[in-house]
Structures are given as structure tokens and as C-alpha cells.
Design a protein around this nucleic acid. Structure first.
Lengths: 365, 365
DNA sequence: ATGAAAGCGCTAACAT
DNA sequence: ATGTTAGCGCTTTCAT
């Protein structure tokens, strides 16, 4: 591949001049510039990123470390991807707007050795965005943070070594639970938890409990351990059903949408009506929830914005490493549909004028 | 940040020795090795990626360029992400298994200047995987290919300058259309196209036409232009309905699942029964299609495998640039559900033993 | 307006 | 077993 030297030689100038032309920097005579550009074009020259990074002491690359549930590899757990994928979009858009690139690393949540991966990753990037905080000890996080600026997405609020950008999980959960409790007055509620140690899952459960504490008449009859995957939601319902002795709860609150969706489907597979027999609500606001019948009542979190803000913050910190740590909580939005027991949306669906008579499809074979 | 020199100095050895220790390479006396490791640990030293790349003449980074529909930025078009996201997963898994990283770039399909972005990206990676071929002219592709190995995912079969890994879109479409035509015998069919110039969309339509040519009794009454987004699927149905004069087709075949899902929802919003009045089928096999009522009949393409194979091939080509271009077509799988008119799946859903009597939920307040 | 040359941090011959 | 040193390709003072 052609190098800067090749260009310089061919154009009969020094490498400095080619570099100048390349960056539009200095004043270079129009003649020279034209000649150099012509050579660059002819050679199809593209500067080597590694060499540039080395020289500039800056890679213009942000690392994005995302955690994936362990059971994702084998299952068709595509629903879960939505969250990280949207964050990724946000990060990429923000980074590329600045001309930077995004280096991604996916790691199983259960994976030990994740610190080693991130540690070596830190040598290839100018900063790191960590999503869904994988199981890093505070010491490990601190270690990473000493090498490169770090922003944690969906992490523990008030992290001391890194900036945090998260959705207002607590507030959203409070709003959702209040709606459920105050509008539908269940006597008994079951909660399907997120992965242990996932800060957003913890916050959501905390918000839920907070509201329940205000309403002693509503009883938490149990919790299931979940992993944010659809499959874990399904299993939660299955074990609930297996306890044939016990009655079903009036409502099931799930820590995220994929689990809630799977829960609804599993209940329906057992001919249990949602919300007739059991109300179900989730958290995320993914599109698939709207496809469900009944559509899922949930809390929408601004996934893409999470990525954007995280990247913005990372840029700020790269520019000025002295900045104080901040925690940004993005607002969430209660989305009331029918799975909680609310009636079909009042806003009327547009009725086709020609609905009346449609020719039925030709019968099969 | 500490450098290799710092380590060498502190350990009282040469940089070469530190480097050796770092890579487990040569024989280094255990004493020295221990001392060096201790220093590395103490300093929290991590080698600089740029310097390594420069020295090794290899970045150990694969670039992943994915195209996103233009209207994605504003809409909640999360369904579409599934395809690229799954491919991304496949690529990342394969790359990281080799210790390589993945640098991603998302670009609007309509974006001009995409060549410039990819061109400069080519300076930062050892090879490039291009998904959903963005609007690159063959000349541009050739230009890129001359700088770095390129594998095109979901691209034109038999590309001459790059390897291609794609799903068997033609075959899948043939299988799907045959099923529809031969089992449900529609008289009239409407087709919702994918984005102009998207090779996979083209292939699917070709497969469809191929089958229709075999069945002169089935009439293609029209096509709609789509962009693979849910919204474009919705609009296609809307304009179909707007032509109140014309009867609806017996079946609507959509070039992908998101459009098909939106089409079903739009029809249902107008109180048109699917598949009763109109059969609808898609292509992709995303999970959301199973949530639909009726579940979507479609063709499943191995999205993750696409990414894996692409990455494998890229590695092969990086190792040996002389390799002949190949085109790999991954098999697809017909997924028959109910939206085409087939009866509910024969396999019985597990019936809960305790289904009989459930306490109804307490009525709301 | 242009050139010369000193690094940037690391690897890998080649010496010893 | 360990040290020396010449690059890798680019940017950027400092001269001219």
C-alpha cells in the first residue's frame, strides 16, 4: 500500500507538505496542492490509522463494551438485543459526527476474564463506554478508569470513578407501579427480577418496592429470578403455574419487556387471560410489546439517547480529564396499554371507508 | 500512561525483554519474568494499540460497515435493527475468538459520501465487512478492495472484486411463494418491494416472480415500493386501501418481516382479517413475527451465521489475499405459521393442569 | 511556501 | 538469556 513517502516522492515534495495538503492545514501553494492531490488520488493513498494515532497520541476511537446475557448465544433471544443495539446506535451516531470510530466488544455477563479483555481494549481506544455493567469489581473499574476515561451506561448512579448515564429506572418503576396499584388495585403481585447485580434491574425493583410500601394492602407474593431474557420470563411463569396449590397473583411485574412478553405468551398458552386473570407489565418500551395482544403496558426508556449522552460525556472527559464525575438520569415515560387492565386506547383507529364488504379470499388448496 | 520503556527501566531490563514477557514468547529466565510481570502489574501497564499495530503491520481490527434505512433515525424502527444486529453479533464473536476487534460504521443508505467514509475507514482496519451493500458503485467497491480485503454480506452474488456471503434469498423466496401459491391458491397477489438496489430485496422478488411464472393463474396485481422499514409496509397497505375502487389482493407478499408485520397491523386496524381476507407473508424470521396474531409465515435466514461466515472468510483472505473470490449462499428455512392461511400449528400447546379454575383478578379502581 | 528531522511506543532481527 | 537498534508511517516543530 502506498505511504505518505510514496506520495511525497511522486509529487516531488516533502512528506510535511503532503501531510499539510491532507489536512487542509497550512498555506500551501495552489500549484503544489493540486499536484499532491492528484498524486494522492492516483495512488489511492489513505493514511495509516495506526501511524496517525501513534503520532497524534490520540486514536479517535471510543470503545463500547456491551454485556450480553449468557443464554443469548444459543437462543433466539433477539428481543434483548434491542436495548444494547439502540445504545450502540446512539454512540455510533455521536462518535461519527465527530469523525471518531467505535470499537465494540461483546461479553457474556457471566464471563470472568472480562476485566482482562477490557483492560487490553483500553490500549486501543481513547475512552470507554461500558453498557450494562458487567461484573467488574469497583477496584477493576477504578483500574480501567485510571487508564482511560470511562462512562457507564445503565450503571449504578453515583459511581465514584466513572461518569454514569442511565435512565430514571427508579422513577419509571415508581410511575408504573403506581399506575398498576392505583388504577387496577391488585391484591397480590409477583415480581420477575432482572439479573443479579444489574444496577438498572435493582433500581426498578427498588421503585416497585417503594410504591408497595405505600400500599400495605397490596401484597408481594413472590419474586422470580430472571436474566432479562425472554426465556427467563417464560420460566418464571412456568414455575408459578407449577405451584398448582397456590393461586396466581393478580399482577406480574417484570423487570423488562422481553421477559414480560414471554410471560404473557406463556400465560396465554395456558389459557390464562391477560389482563383478565393476570395483569402483566414490563419495562423498556420496545416495539415488540406493541405487537402483543394485549399490547404491553410498560415504561419507555430513551435507549438511543442513553448512547448519545454517554458518548457526549466521554468526549467532554477526554477533552478534560479533570472534570468531576457526574450522573445523568434521563427521564422515562409511562406507556399505558392494555396488558395492565386498561381499556383499549381511546383514540379511535381510522376506519377504512371501504371496510364494509371485502371479498373473502379464495379458499385454499 | 506508562510505556514499555517505563517497565523496562523499572525492572532493570531492556524493552525487548519486557516485550518477550508480554507475549510469553522466548525463553526468559523465571526470575526476570517474575520481576517484569510484577512491574507491569504495579504500573498497570497496557501496550499501546497504535504502536503495536504500526510495528506489526497489522491492526487486528475488522471493519464492519452497516447500512441503515434513511428513515430509521427518526422512527421507532427498532425491528429493522435485528438483521444488522445479529450479523454484528456473529462478526464480533468470530473476531473476538481470534482476539481481534470490530470497528463499526453505520451509514444511512441514501448517504452519498459513504465511499469517503469507508475509504478512510480502510486505513484503520485490516479488512472490511460490508453489510446491506450501501450505494457503492462497482468502481468504488473495487477501489476499496484494492486497499483491503472485503467481504460483502447480503450482497450481489458473484461479485467480482469481493467475497460474498449471503442467505439464499432466491431459494427462500421460491419456497415461500410456492407454499403460498400451491397451498392457498390466491388468485391475486400484491408484492411489497425492498429498497431499490438492495441485492437481497432483488433476489427475493426474483424468486417470487420465478414461481409466479410457473403459475399463470396467479396474477400479480401490483407492487409497492418499500424500504424494509415497518413504516413503509404500513404505507404500502394504506395506499392499497386508498384505491377503494379496487379489490384487495388475496395475498400480500412482503420483502421482509418488519414490513409484513406492519402490513398485518394496518390491515387489522381496518378490520380486515388476516389471513381470512388477505394472506400476508414476510421474510427474515425475526422473533416479533411470532408475537403477531396470526403469527407470521416467513422465511428464516441465518443472520448470525451470515456474520460468522463473513468474518471467517475475511480472515482467510487476510491470511492469503490471493484467494479466489467466492460466493457463499447460506440456506434459508421456510417457516409456516398462520398468516398465510395455514391452520394453527398442529403441535398441541401444553395445557396447564390447573387451567380450569382461576380466580379472576380483582376488578379495578 | 516548503523541507529536514525528531519523535510517538512497540517489535524483531541481529548481537552478545 | 538478554540487550541494541532499526524501522513501522505519520505529525510537527524548527529552519530556511
Amino acid at each position: 500500500l502506498p505511504t505518505l513517502y510514496d506520495c511525497a516522492d511522486l509529487a516531488g515534495v516533502s512528506t510535511a507538505t503532503v501531510s499539510r495538503v491532507l489536512h487542509g492545514y497550512d498555506r500551501v501553494s495552489d500549484k503544489t496542492r493540486a499536484r499532491v492531490l492528484e498524486v494522492i488520488e492516483r495512488l489511492g493513498y489513505v493514511p495509516d490509522g495506526a501511524a496517525q494515532s501513534l503520532s497524534l497520541r490520540r486514536k479517535e476511537i471510543v470503545g463500547l463494551a456491551i454485556g450480553a446475557p449468557d443464554d443469548m448465544a444459543t437462543e433466539i433471544e433477539t428481543l434483548n438485543l434491542l436495548f444494547t443495539d439502540q445504545v450502540l446506535r446512539g454512540v455510533e451516531m455521536t462518535a461519527s459526527a465527530r469523525g471518531w470510530s467505535v470499537l465494540i466488544t461483546v461479553s457474556q455477563l457471566g464471563d470472568q476474564g472480562i476485566f482482562k479483555r477490557l483492560n487490553s481494549l483500553s490500549g486501543k481506544v481513547d475512552g470507554l463506554i461500558v453498557v450494562d455493567t458487567p461484573p467488574l469489581t469497583p477496584a477493576e473499574l477504578a483500574r480501567l478508569a485510571s487508564r482511560a476515561p470511562i462512562v457507564v451506561v445503565a450503571g449504578v448512579p453515583d459511581e465514584t470513578v466513572a461518569d454514569v448515564v442511565a435512565a430514571d429506572n427508579f422513577g419509571g418503576s415508581v410511575a408504573l407501579t403506581r399506575h398498576l396499584v392505583e388504577h387496577h388495585g391488585p391484591n397480590t403481585v409477583h415480581y420477575v427480577l432482572g439479573p443479579k447485580g444489574a444496577p438498572d434491574a435493582t433500581e426498578r425493583f427498588a421503585g416497585f418496592r417503594h410504591v408497595l410500601d405505600e400500599h400495605p394492602n397490596v401484597r408481594l407474593t413472590g419474586t422470580s429470578e430472571g436474566t432479562f431474557t425472554a426465556d427467563s420470563g417464560r420460566r418464571a411463569v412456568q414455575s408459578l403455574l407449577a405451584q398448582a396449590s397456590r393461586q396466581l397473583p393478580d399482577a406480574i411485574v417484570c423487570a423488562n419487556d422481553p421477559m414480560a412478553i414471554a410471560a404473557v405468551l406463556e400465560l396465554q398458552a395456558h389459557h390464562i387471560s391477560v389482563p383478565g386473570d393476570v395483569a402483566v407489565v414490563g419495562f423498556d418500551g420496545i416495539y415488540a410489546g406493541e405487537l402483543l395482544d394485549p399490547p404491553l403496558t410498560t415504561v419507555r426508556q430513551p435507549m438511543r439517547a442513553l448512547g448519545e449522552r454517554a458518548c457526549d460525556r466521554l468526549f467532554e472527559r477526554i477533552a478534560n480529564p479533570q472534570l468531576e464525575r457526574t450522573t445523568v438520569l434521563l427521564p422515562t415515560e409511562l406507556v399505558v396499554k392494555r396488558s395492565c387492565g386498561c381499556p383499549a386506547e381511546p383514540r379511535p383507529r381510522p376506519l377504512s371507508t371501504s371496510t364494509a364488504k371485502r371479498r373473502p379470499r379464495a379458499a385454499g388448496s
